[in-house]
Design a binder for these strands. Sequence first.
DNA 1: GGGGGATTGCAACATTTGTTCTATGTATGT
DNA 2: ACATACATAGAACAAATGTTGCAATCCCCC
Lengths: 276, 276
Amino acid sequence: MPGARNFDDLKGDLTRSYPGLSPQLQNIATFALEHPQDMALDTVARLAKGIGVQPSAMVRFAQALGYEGFSGLQRVFRTRLVERSNNHPGLRNYRERIEAFRAGHERPGPRGVLSQFVADGITSLEQLLEHVAPADLAAAVKLLAGAKTIYVLGHRRSFPVAYYLSYALTQLELRAPLLDSVGGMLREPARLIGPKDALLVVSFRNYTPEVVEIAKDCHARKVPVIAITDNALSPLARASRICFQIEEKTSMPFRMLVAPMCLAQALVVAVGEQLG
Amino acid sequence: MPGARNFDDLKGDLTRSYPGLSPQLQNIATFALEHPQDMALDTVARLAKGIGVQPSAMVRFAQALGYEGFSGLQRVFRTRLVERSNNHPGLRNYRERIEAFRAGHERPGPRGVLSQFVADGITSLEQLLEHVAPADLAAAVKLLAGAKTIYVLGHRRSFPVAYYLSYALTQLELRAPLLDSVGGMLREPARLIGPKDALLVVSFRNYTPEVVEIAKDCHARKVPVIAITDNALSPLARASRICFQIEEKTSMPFRMLVAPMCLAQALVVAVGEQLG
DNA sequence: GGGGGATTGCAACATTTGTTCTATGTATGT
DNA sequence: ACATACATAGAACAAATGTTGCAATCCCCC
């Protein structure tokens, strides 16, 4: 078996033969895919030290892929590097392209849709960073870190965000149950939420009525409510102690979840730092 | 005089000192500027032979530019190569901005965490656009639009993405049930998936075993499987007909969901366009 | 529990690498 | 025409590289 001559084929070979490799060689494989530049330029010794393996393991890895030695494998990474640096479209070219799909003039089809989403997603994230007040963020983190139980609520398109929050906060060994309506029970547990707890609620328009009502109810009962919603006119803005407003200024006919998801992950990590 | 550290400075040094160089060194200089890639990767001996000089001349050339030896000079060409390959379309535009984020808000605390997430999220999205093959995307859309039933599968941190896919595809009036394990039933419905259906599976490391096994099973039974996973070594890469690999090149110790979520939304919209 | 195969660590090996040294050649200026 | 300074070529050297062989270890199957 001769070794692959280009990087894509190499990736294919790797996925195919990965399961049959020894644990050590698997380690090397993951490293190779995650640090292709190092693989291209570093020496065997340095790479081996970086991975925590003997240089011989590198050679065996290359041989397992059909190359005569490590050099043959490295050649693939090197050619990839020079090719990537060669087909460098001019900067002018790229600027036009980004403007094009920013403006929505990119040719249609699935690829166009993806470019559009990526562009809007980036805009979304930039706006997120701009609009979130550091004070709010700090307050929310403190609140969450100190709450007895964090109840997480979000339905329909907001549910993925809510689920993630519950999942990840639980990983931090916090009590963070998800308020869902499995079996039709939703309002009942909500009544048990107290001022020492916290309600983390996610909703965008049009705001699911049940969700809004639970938030209002809790807020009225002095439960600290943290909301993730779209703008200042949201009913959640009036029914929360801290409200993250993620404005939507995209070309899409419906809400993107990129920014809310990002905020959710950042929140969780910040809470984790606060605790540990 | 210390040698220049980056390629542009090196070019400046060269133009300045070129007239005072010996004819042979001038030859080397022109070659170096005309074949920067060879200068980055080849050895002294091969380069010297290519130019028609002795290896020692290469060393003297480097020393004439202020480097200790040829290796120091070559380092400049190498870093140029990796930088050019990093500034690939997409990354270029926002790199400065990301650096700004990092520089401006690196200090710890919730705000720092958020800016870090935003920066990594943007990088993520750009890599998404770069790595997704348009052909794969088109094929996936066609497959999904034509499937009798689309089964959606994803657990733990991948569940939000899976849920969203199921939710949004259902909004398009497609049959897109979520394969969950409520009540412990997961394997049974999976057996009913046939070649006219499709399985849309999301999983990242470490890949939930149940999920992987269902995907493998379906793939073996000729069910079209579309996977969203992290890299070429994922078991899903081997158990799918179409595989979207969302590489993870962030500073975070765990997976970000920004890019997968974005891909999911783009997929849904593209399917919608295909239908309508 | 023990035997056999695969896997890994270690060290020695031959080769190649970058560098340096010296001798030869070459141009320049007096 | 000669001396001097410089440029070049070639060989020699030490360091580092990629590679291989062997022994120790782990793990699985009988």
